[in-house]
Design a protein around this nucleic acid. Structure first.
Length: 953
DNA sequence: GTAGGGTTAG
């Protein structure tokens, strides 16, 4: 007949002082007793198996019915309490505690109380452990060690050290265990002083060569970053060490990021005949987290499988992490699926594995799976899932995760907050980012750096600077990353004095590293401070490819494309191999100079260097060939590229557009639609631009329409400007103005600029005045606008207004960009300004130009059209001015310095004027030359007296 | 008589 025994604290217990140490009453649990009686040896055997329930049955049977002798009862309590500690079974432990108090069997209260302190510590109930300890009238070294151990394993290393001080004061004897435990506390604290101090005491107390102590020392020094000290101790211990000694040193090297040494020691350990255990497996797998060591990791995996036992959870988790770090998520998934037990670390490791490998959708999926499986996501899960949403840039997903964090009280974790700030920044949602940042209860310097970078990268430069000042007030640590963001902000704002200040700050605080120096070159470059940029560039001793590229970009950005090309060749001479970014920059320099032979040279360089022609490099080449006037090369190259991405299609459409190949651009767009790619804002900008340059009005309007209706792309001001340009060029000025007024967004300067340009060409006086006023209102600091406006007034013969504009421009300290044309001859770029007389062949050029003009007047009926001279000067002077236009000088030079019949390619920084356009047409006819002129806006191909633009530009 | 040292996610 089965009997039942209830385990619950008896009511009388509440009067006993020791009960107050209990924080909560254990729930009532009922175990059925087996009919067969058991003896103490059976209890021991069952306990060894580790089955808590069986042990309890056996325990209660023994205690109640079989053996009323106290000594035996003590031992029964003891082994059962040990099992509770091992299983972290607090409830059962408390029941035994209650039982001890009521039974009165115990002969050695110090011994059993120590066991209880130990049990409570292991079960995470520090308060119970401490109260019990405090109430004990007598304590042994074991008791002290048990409580010190409780503090260490419950993450309170400082309290552990404090207790040790108390122990010293009371002159309690210490043992090896005391030191081993204390050294573990020192390892968690990572304080460079505590560990060696305890080490010294251990030696003094005669425990310096205890294997327990030395093993702890090896681990402690490694965790405090002094792996060489660990190695010293290990080498001295080698003869007397055990498996733990080996495990400690292997883990030390893995931890330190020296996988080779760790793996070497693993081999040595095997050669020494020391058999490994699960700690060895984990430590070694940690060293296999680089792709090159993955093979060994897989060998260990196979060896584990051959053992024919289930994997320990630590082993399986380490395998997951190893495979994830090696990029083998398929293997990680396989291990994960075969695990019979999964803990929070297993789930989180999978989750972070997916995130690390860029498999964000799968990360989101497993986040839901873990919830379905009853594993509650914790702060680590949330950090990973929020980070995945950020990298996906999916705001809605990110907000959902944020909601989850709030609902489960995880948003107050510092790292969760930091990741949320980063996620909102990556989703381009600086407003929410700011809110999360402001609400964070604690912030570290990572929070500040992330938020500042978020603002700077979203072009909220002022906000970035404001936060930076606040960070300084808060005395936050300022690191190179934060400075990088601030430089970005100052660069964006063109705050040159600020940039200089930061430059000083960086120098004074010794923060100047290569990365920062390169960034400062970039920023000075952006701000037009070529001198400063160059000075820093020169001062860098070990320039890397980024330093060179930054300086090259600085030159390109400031119109020094020739210098950029020189720098590029200098870099190659120095022995630094250009990377794709350097090559893309230099291609843009060749493109901006229309330096075809340089461009071809770089193309050759790319092919020789084994760069695959795809991605940005392919698009840059297409763009370069188009801008060098050889659109045919662009088409050929484009057709040869197998993997065409959207940027490449867009570049090709844009290239067609600038050469006036509107129909080809449309055909390309149709082909693009047949692929899997989806045109974006930039693609539509290119096609609208192409339509406007080929006078395809209806087509352009249709593209704007399908952009909105078919692709749900809300047009940017740039798209509207393109349509205004399109209508304006076609002399539909009224429609253009109506269009501007009907825009759903405020028209920007670019829109008014397009309208104004059209008014000038088509003499739209009244409208021109409206557009001019709006333009100067919106962009009073752009000198180009004043030039355009004064030109419009000049075309209306309103010379007083012209003067007014010029005076206003002067008082604002603005200067018009001077005209400049250039031509590449014999691998060198020759440039000419208006009425330039500085060229070595100056005499010949001017003589030739006079002869050409005469021939064209005589044979081609050329008459200078002085209405294009927008200066209030006499007729004769106007003719002189026309003759001095930079493109004519370049053409004259081209004619005398290149073989007959070869094409001449000229590039001009401003738009070509009407008179020069007519002049060039005649040259192409009477000198039988093909001329390709690229102006600020487009290409003109002159051949046999006609231009590809159809006189429409 | 006890235990104590070495391991996994961010």
């Amino acid at each position: 007949m089965a009997q039942t025994l209830q385990f619950c604290p008896p009511p009388s217990l509440s009067s006993q002082p020791i009960l107050h140490t209990m924080q909560r009453s254990p729930p009532v649990q009922t175990f059925k007793l087996p009919q067969k009686s058991l003896n103490f040896q059976t209890l021991k055997d069952i306990c060894k198996d580790g089955n808590l329930r069986e042990t309890f049955l056996s325990f209660s049977n023994l205690l109640t019915f079989q053996n009323p002798h106290q000594v035996l009862a003590d031992e029964a309590y003891s082994i059962t309490l040990d099992l509770c500690a091992r299983k972290e079974a607090l409830t059962q432990g408390q029941q035994i505690h209650a039982h001890i108090l009521t039974s009165g069997f115990t002969s050695d209260m110090v011994f059993l109380s120590t066991k209880l302190v130990f049990m409570y510590g292991k079960c995470g109930s520090l308060t119970n452990a401490r109260r019990l300890f405090d109430q004990m009238p007598q304590r042994t070294t074991f008791t002290w060690n048990a409580l010190i151990g409780s503090y260490v394993s419950n993450g309170q290393p400082n309290e552990a050290l404090e207790l040790f001080r108390e122990m010293q004061l009371q002159r309690i004897a210490v043992d090896a265990c005391t030191f081993a435990t204390l050294l573990k506390a020192c390892a968690t604290l990572k304080d460079p002083n505590f560990g060696p101090a305890i080490h010294g005491l251990a030696v003094k107390s005669g425990f310096g060569s205890s294997v327990f102590v030395v093993n702890s020392l090896v681990a402690m020094y490694a965790k405090c970053g002094d792996v060489s000290r660990s190695r010293q101790l290990f080498d001295r211990m080698l003869e007397r060490g055990d498996v733990v000694t080996w495990n400690s040193i292997i883990s030390a090297y893995s931890l330190q990021g020296q996988p080779l040494e760790a793996l070497k020691l693993f081999r040595e350990m095997q050669n020494a005949g020391v058999s490994m255990n699960s700690y060895t497996v984990v430590g070694t797998l940690q060293a296999c987290q680089e792709l090159s060591f993955a093979k060994l990791g897989m060998e260990i995996h196979n060896a584990l499988l051959k053992l024919g036992r289930n994997l320990h959870i630590y082993e399986a988790n380490a395998l997951l992490v190893m495979y994830a770090r090696c990029g083998r998520m398929d293997e990680a998934v396989r291990v994960f699926q075969q695990m019979d037990n999964r803990d929070d670390i297993s789930w989180n490791s999978m989750l972070s594995g997916f995130v690390q490998n860029g498999l964000y959708e799968k990360a989101i999926k497993i986040f839901h799976e873990m919830q379905d499986a009853g594993q509650k996501p914790d702060q680590v899960s949330v950090i990973n899932i929020v980070s995945a949403s950020g990298r996906l840039g999916t705001l809605l997903n990110g907000m959902e995760c944020h909601g989850y964090a709030i609902k489960h009280g995880l948003d107050s974790y510092l790292q969760v907050g930091n990741t949320l700030v980063d996620m909102y920044a990556k989703c381009c949602c600086v407003i929410y980012m700011g809110r999360v940042f402001n609400k964070m209860p604690d912030k570290d310097y990572i929070s500040w750096t992330t938020a500042i970078a978020g603002y700077a990268q979203s072009c909220c430069y002022l906000e970035a600077l404001r936060l930076f000042r606040e960070a300084q007030v808060e005395r936050m640590q300022v690191d190179a990353l934060m400075i990088g963001s601030i430089l970005l902000a100052c660069g964006g704002l063109r705050y040159i004095p600020h940039v200089k200040q930061i430059h000083n700050y960086v120098t004074r605080h010794g923060l100047f590293d290569l990365v920062l120096a390169n960034t400062i070159i970039d920023v000075y470059g952006e701000c037009g401070e070529i001198e400063y940029a160059s000075r820093i560039f020169e001062s860098i001793e070990n320039k890397d490819v980024v330093s060179w590229t930054s300086m090259i970009s600085c030159c390109i950005h400031n119109g020094l494309a020739n210098e950029a090309l020189d720098l590029f060749y200098d870099m190659i001479d120095t022995g630094i191999a250009p990377d794709s970014i350097a090559l893309i920059s230099i291609l843009s320099a060749a493109a901006s100079l229309s330096a075809l032979s340089k461009g071809k040279e770089i193309h050759g360089f790319l092919l020789r260097g084994g760069f695959s022609l795809e991605g940005s490099i392919a698009s840059s080449l297409v763009d370069m060939y188009a801008k060098c006037g050889t659109i045919d090369y662009s088409y050929k190259l484009f057709d040869r590229i197998t993997h065409k991405d959207l940027v490449l299609w867009t570049s090709m459409i844009n290239a067609s557009g600038m050469h006036g190949h509107g129909r080809e651009a449309m055909a390309l767009f149709t082909r693009l639609k047949e692929t899997d790619l989806i045109p974006d804002h930039i693609t539509f900008l290119a096609i609208l631009y192409a339509c406007s340059h080929s006078g395809l009005i209806e087509e352009g309007k249709r593209y704007l329409e399908i952009m909105r209706s078919e692709y749900q792309l809300e047009p940017w001001p740039e798209h509207y400007a393109c349509v205004v340009d399109l209508l304006g060029r076609a002399n539909c000025l009224d429609e253009a103005y109506r269009f501007v007024k009907s825009m759903p967004i405020q028209p920007t300067a670019a829109v008014w600029c397009a309208l104004l340009g059209a008014c000038r060409v088509h003499s739209g006086h009244e409208l021109g005045e409206i557009a001019a006023r709006k333009l100067l209102e919106l962009e009073p600091e752009n000198p180009g606008n004043y030039v355009l406006v004064s030109n419009v007034f000049a075309a209306m013969q309103r010379w007083k207004d012209v003067d007014g504009v010029r005076i206003r421009m002067k008082t604002m300290g603005l200067k018009k960009n001077p005209a400049c044309s250039w031509i590449e001859v014999g691998n060198e770029v020759h440039s000419f300004t208006t009425r330039d007389r500085t060229h070595p062949l100056n005499e010949e050029i001017h003589l030739n130009l006079a002869q050409i003009t005469e021939k064209l007047e005589r044979e081609g009926g050329y008459v200078p059209e002085t209405k294009y001279v927008l200066h209030d000067v006499g007729e004769e002077e106007k003719v002189k001015m026309l003759y001095g236009h930079s493109e004519r000088l370049a053409i004259a030079f081209g004619l005398i310095s290149t073989p007959e019949g070869t094409p001449i390619r000229i590039t001009k920084n401003l738009r070509v004027c009407g008179d020069c356009h007519a002049f060039t047409k005649l040259i192409s006819r009477f000198f039988k030359r093909e001329l390709v002129v690229r102006d600020a806006n487009r290409f003109h191909h002159f051949q046999g007296g006609v231009c590809s633009c159809g006189d429409f530009w």
